[in-house]
C-alpha cells in the first residue's frame, strides 16, 4: 500500500477523534455502499471553529484525511475553513494515491456539511451555494 508516512501517521494516530457533546454543527457525508462515511462535529464561537472532532468509517486514507482536516480547520473562521479544498487536504498529507483522492473530497464535504448545519441552526438558512457533490460522482453503483 503506497501511503506516505504522513498518511500512515494520521491513520495510526488520528487527531481529534470523537463527537462533541452539544456541537454547534454536525456534518455527515459519504455512502456506506462505497465504504466510507465521515461525521464531523464543530464547536463554533464568534464565527471561529474552536473545537472539531470526527468519526469515520472507512479506509486508511479516509481516516487520515478526516484527521488532518480537523487540524486544518481548527481555529479558523468559517469563511477560511470553507476555503480548505480537497487538494489542500491531500497535499497536507504529502499526497494520496490516485484511487484515494475521493477520500480528500469526502473531508472537504464533511467540513462544508458541518458548517451548513451550523448556519441552518443559527440563521435558518444553510450555505448559499453548496459545492457539487464530487464524492458520489467518483463512484458508480
Amino acid at each position: 500500500m503506497q501511503y506516505s508516512p504522513k498518511v500512515m501517521d494520521h491513520f495510526a494516530n488520528p487527531r481529534n477523534v470523537g463527537e462533541i457533546a452539544g456541537a454547534d454543527g454536525v456534518g455527515e457525508v459519504g455512502n456506506p455502499a462505497c465504504g466510507d462515511i465521515m461525521k464531523m462535529s464543530l464547536k463554533i464561537k464568534d464565527n471561529v471553529i474552536v473545537d472539531v472532532k470526527f468519526k469515520t468509517f472507512g479506509c486508511g486514507a479516509a481516516i487520515a484525511t478526516s484527521s488532518i482536516s480537523t487540524e486544518m480547520i481548527k481555529g479558523k473562521t468559517l469563511e477560511d475553513a470553507l476555503k480548505v479544498t480537497n487538494k489542500a487536504v491531500a497535499e497536507a498529507l504529502d499526497g494520496l494515491p490516485p484511487a484515494k483522492m475521493h477520500c480528500s473530497v469526502l473531508a472537504e464535504e464533511a467540513i462544508e456539511a458541518a458548517i451548513d448545519d451550523y448556519l441552518k441552526k443559527t440563521t435558518g438558512k444553510g450555505l448559499e451555494k453548496k459545492k457539487a457533490h464530487k464524492h458520489d460522482e467518483r463512484h458508480e453503483h
Binding site: 500500500m1 491513520f11 462505497c34 468509517f57 486508511g60 479516509a62 481516516i63
Partner: peptide, 21 residues
C-alpha cells in the same frame, strides 16, 4: 472497514486480505 484493518494488521506483520472496495 477492511483496508484499515489490513493496514493495522500489517503493522503487526500479519498478512491477510479483504473484500473491501
Amino acid at each position: 472497514e477492511g483496508e484499515a484493518i489490513l493496514l493495522l494488521l500489517n503493522e503487526k506483520g500479519i498478512c491477510a486480505s479483504s473484500g473491501s472496495a
